[in-house]
Design a protein around this nucleic acid. Structure first.
Lengths: 152, 152
DNA sequence: GACATCTCCTTGACTGCTCAAGCATATGGG
DNA sequence: CCCATATGCTTGAGCAGTCAAGGAGATGTC
């Protein structure tokens, strides 16, 4: 029996469940998907709240075209602005607008609440959650620093 | 700081990476996606290697239409057969063919190998992998034995 | 300064799923 | 028996992503 394969299949399943749950809350309250939220969150972590679209793609694990398509609705509803680069006419930054920052704070609260619900359900301790995040960090390459649990 | 939200975002990221990796190997060697493989695996776990399509959907966390669409190519390449029910003309079983069983064994070997690669990379112990699987089982509700509340 | 080449980004065609609608069949109540 | 309702499945439209192709601008070489 291959425990790793089992873990992978469970991970895929868990992801589907979680994404549905977050999409429902974020969509209902703020009109955005979890993917939208993640994108905005990345932008908010960048200096000046803006990134080149190609770097955003890299950071999110998407292709450039995925980012182009994902940004369209966010620009339309005014959460993200398209910013040209003075030096290089090829690049267009995606930048968080003031509205985007405000709305993002609300979304973060919603997402945080959902996460608390998820990890409160049966018997999740703070330790468990951290442990899970650490293990997942080793798998995904989030771009954010994060190691696994210390080697006991 | 919400550690749960962090864990969720990492999980989503890890899933994307893993799915790409498995799709590449399974697609290259056997012409199927990870989703196809998961579907076949479920079938192989059912008594008689067959399930009603509606139950398959439930087991996979998909909708009925997702199953209908996913089965089309598998029927076309002869891994799955469509089996009517003698008692109820509405139901159509999805059943693994002999070819399907054979090919599935090969796919399982491939997937197992990829899983080993994934979990060998930096410093995954057997313990870590089991731990991860256990934590994920609490989140996802795999339908396979394991714990996890029925939830909403 | 002109050409080849590289980078950033967008677009068209496709895939794999969703939801909503619909068809066919089953089932229980008058 | 006949009708209302429930169930199993398929289909059309749409959405979010992919890849492949291509346009526009930058850059290095001679």
């Amino acid at each position: 029996m291959n425990g790793g394969l089992d873990a992978v299949l469970r991970l895929v399943r868990a992801q589907a469940v979680l994404v549905k749950r977050f999409d429902a809350s974020l969509g209902g309250l703020h009109g955005v998907s979890l993917a939208d939220f993640t994108l905005l969150l990345r932008l908010s972590e960048a200096p000046g709240d803006r990134m080149r679209r190609v770097d955003l793609a890299e950071a999110l694990g998407l292709t450039a075209s995925g980012v182009t398509r994902g940004l369209v609705p966010l620009e339309r509803i005014g959460l993200v602005r398209r910013d040209p680069d003075a030096r290089d006419a090829r690049v267009a930054y995606a930048a968080l607008t003031d509205t985007g920052r405000e709305r993002l704070a609300e979304m973060r609260a919603t997402a945080g609440r959902v996460a608390e619900e998820v990890f409160a359900e049966p018997a999740w301790t703070e330790e468990d959650t951290k442990l899970l995040a650490g293990l997942l960090g080793r798998l995904g390459g989030t771009g954010i620093a994060g190691q696994g649990p210390a080697g006991s």
